[in-house]
Design a protein around this nucleic acid. Structure first.
Length: 532
RNA sequence: GGCCCCUUCGUCUAGUGGUUAGGACAUUAGGUUUUCAUCCUAAAAACAGGGAUUCGAUUCCCCUAGGGGCUACCA
């Protein structure tokens, strides 16, 4: 078998769609598994939808997610004068995606070749005429289709119109008899009636090719062996197969992926919440979770295998096109959240802390002179000073890891870190009634807090750690017959101000003796204020 | 409308001509000597419907229904 070569071919229309990510991932897995090539090709032939900067963003997000790609502008085509590709991220120093808008001369050449071969023709119909035609056809309940007005123009007519600078497109002269059969890697045999096929535009009047032309030409020139793409392309397979046939090119294998759906089973779109990979990134989803989750949307190892957590490496080994599903899959955020939480829980603590830094800074809890938090963790970060904005106090990275450690198992997304830990950075406000456990009276709460204050005061600063505090306080509670819940709940709330939080001793350790006492005092004062 | 694709718990899915139809997320209940979370245990939860083939169909075939995609000088 020829060396496997696959491509991911997004359009730079704004952002990488989560469905696009899965398509890219499947292609990438297939390439890596077969020691083949994974190529990126930017399909920017629609100038109306082109968004400046989208390509750069796409490359950046692919980089972030960890899908590396191969090959640069190495294709040799001596008889075509045009740029094969242009560097996008030069400092990356590796490979660059192909960009279709830089390859116009190539498509032009093949469009002309198709005309010469009688497989395509010039069409001078105006968009207005086509629109009217379509309206009439729809009104008469006919399938909208080009009526072939320009199909048989004489060479003289064509030359005349070209000379007069009439705008033209080049249309596919699709044979109107027989059937076209595709043997899809995922769906098996799919047959189409040729007479139902429209004569699609291959080359637009603005000098750009349409998808159908550019795609087939590029897949051929780039020697793509397997086309793994979304199911939305299945219907245009006859056009593509016909092009391969008339051009005399070898036909690659096709695998049409099921679509990703929203909760209501419609196509996943922006109305249903975030679908851009960058949105998931901003919210604090980890690449590993996103990748793991995406893979499982439409694929699984089968054979009764019950593993759900996969590293990329494992996926490269076990992935197979044959086990990809045929039915669309709903994108279930809840399961993603669970997976992301799993990856967060299993993350190395200093890595996780570093990932949390931007969120702590963005939400105004701390500030730092460092703004670049790239991996691996540098000495610069380890030695960095962070100022707590509320108190002006300066802390180091290690102190921040302690805070993150306390919330690690509670976090589903990195973005939650700020809300979860903000009581470490500013004194809490005590919600009315929260300081008491069950049906404690205010006097009881105050008594217990006073008791804690008195005893914690006696504990040496150096012993102010979770283990010692826990042992000591529990002993005292027992000795004084105080009740664990009646003591520890008020203490925990006094320190955190929250309904739910880490345990009181853990918080006390991080806060230190002084702040712990201040907060106990504050809590007592609050209750007394209510009492008076 | 036409063409094409699809159909197992709410969701992602495993699975086979004969299974107690398995797992995960979510849900519910209980446990893990204060809360939440984690972790553990348990429960509830599915073969779209109708035919045909067969001793026997969730599994093979047909039809219906439902969902999705395409139907542009968009990709």
């Amino acid at each position: 078998m020829d060396k496997v070569r696959v491509r991911f071919a997004p359009s730079p229309t704004g952002y990488l769609h989560i469905g696009g990510l899965r398509t890219a991932l499947y292609n990438w897995l297939f390439a890596r598994q077969n020691k083949g090539m994974f190529i990126i090709r930017i399909e920017d032939t629609d100038r109306k939808r082109f968004v400046p900067g989208a390509t750069e963003k796409l490359i950046e997000i692919l980089d972030w997610i960890g899908l590396d790609y191969d090959e640069g502008p190495y294709l040799k085509m001596s008889n075509v004068k045009c740029q094969m590709s242009k560097p996008i991220i030069q400092e990356r120093g590796k490979y660059r995606p192909y960009i279709q808008s830089k390859r116009l001369a190539i498509y032009q050449k093949y469009a002309q070749e198709l005309v010469k071969k009688g497989a395509a023709y010039y069409c001078f119909c105006s968009p207005e005429r086509l629109e009217k035609l379509r309206q009439v056809q729809i009104a008469n309940k006919l399938p909208p289709k080009y009526d072939g007005l320009c199909r048989n123009l004489s060479q003289k007519e064509i030359n005349d119109k070209l000379k007069k600078n009439f705008l033209f497109v080049i249309r596919l002269k699709f044979p109107q008899t027989g059937t076209t059969v595709l043997n899809d890697l995922i769906r098996g045999k799919v047959a189409f009636n040729n007479s139902l096929q429209d004569e699609a535009v291959l080359f637009k009047s603005d000098g750009y090719p349409t998808y159908h032309l550019a795609n087939v030409v590029d897949d051929y020139l780039m020697k793509i062996t397997h086309i793994i793409r979304g199911e939305e392309w299945l219907s245009s397979i006859p056009k593509h197969l016909f092009l391969y046939q008339v051009l005399g090119w070898p036909v690659p294998k096709f695998a049409h992926l099921p679509l990703l759906l929203s909760k209501d089973r419609s196509k996943l779109s922006k109305r249903h919440g975030d679908i851009a990979v960058e949105d998931f990134r901003a919210k604090g989803y980890l690449p590993a979770a996103l990748l793991n989750f995406s893979t499982l949307l439409g694929w699984n190892p089968g054979k009764g295998e019950e593993q759900e957590i996969f590293t990329l490496k494992e996926l490269v080994q076990t992935f197979s096109l044959e086990k990809i599903h045929k039915a669309g899959a709903i994108f279930d955020l809840e399961k993603l959240d669970w997976l992301n939480g799993w990856y967060i829980r299993h993350k190395n603590l200093s890595d996780l802390t570093k990932l949390c830094l931007p969120y702590l800074i963005r939400t105004g809890l701390i500030k730092s002179k460092i703004s670049n938090f790239q991996f691996p963790i540098s000495k610069q970060i380890l030695n960095a000073k962070f100022q707590i904005i509320q108190t002006g106090e300066v802390v180091n990275f290690k102190w921040l890891t302690k805070i993150v450690a306390l919330e690690q198992e509670r976090m589903k997304k990195l973005s939650e870190i700020a809300e979860l830990t903000k009581f470490f950075f500013k004194e809490p406000n005590y919600e009315r009634g929260l300081l008491g456990w069950k049906k404690m009276t205010r006097e009881q709460i105050v008594d217990n807090l006073q008791f804690l204050k008195k005893n914690l005061f006696k504990i040496n600063k150096n012993n102010f750690n979770k283990k010692y505090l826990e042992k000591k306080i529990l002993e005292l509670i027992k000795k004084n017959n105080l009740g664990i819940g009646e003591t520890l709940w008020p203490m925990r709330v006094a320190l955190s101000g929250r309904v739910a939080s880490p345990g009181p001793f853990e918080i006390a350790e991080v806060l230190g003796k002084d702040k712990t006492l201040v907060r106990l005092n504050q809590a007592i004062k609050t209750i007394c204020l209510i009492l008076s």
